[in-house]
């Protein structure tokens, strides 16, 4: 392993390093919020399908309720965009 000390690094290297960390942060923001909304949607989706199996007219309501946790991942996406472009 190459031992890089921050005192020896050039300005370009430090900037590149920061960009990398920002990219990782943005990735985590989208990825983790994606997993979280997945967990939240799993039960709602199952329940919506269960209710729909008995009453087809609940399709619209079930669909809307199922995608409500999708907002979490949108927040994640917004955070990622802010990180990357601002």
């Amino acid at each position: 392993m190459v031992d890089i000390s921050i005192a020896d690094a050039t300005v370009e290297q430090i900037l590149a390093n920061q960009k990398g960390l920002i990219a990782i942060g943005a990735g985590l923001a989208v990825g983790l919020s994606g997993i979280a909304s997945g967990i939240a949607e799993k039960d709602i989706g199952a329940a919506a399908v269960g209710a729909m199996a008995e009453r087809e007219e609940l399709f619209g309501k079930g669909l809307i309720l199922t995608v409500i946790p999708e907002t979490i991942v949108i927040f994640g996406l917004v955070v990622a965009i802010l990180l990357l472009f601002l």
Partner: peptide, 17 residues
């Protein structure tokens, strides 16, 4: 625990009583 599906379905069935 696979309750969400069955409980929602049962509630829909209950509404038909």
């Amino acid at each position: 625990k696979k309750y969400p599906y069955i409980t929602a379905r049962v509630r829909a069935m209950k509404s038909k009583l």
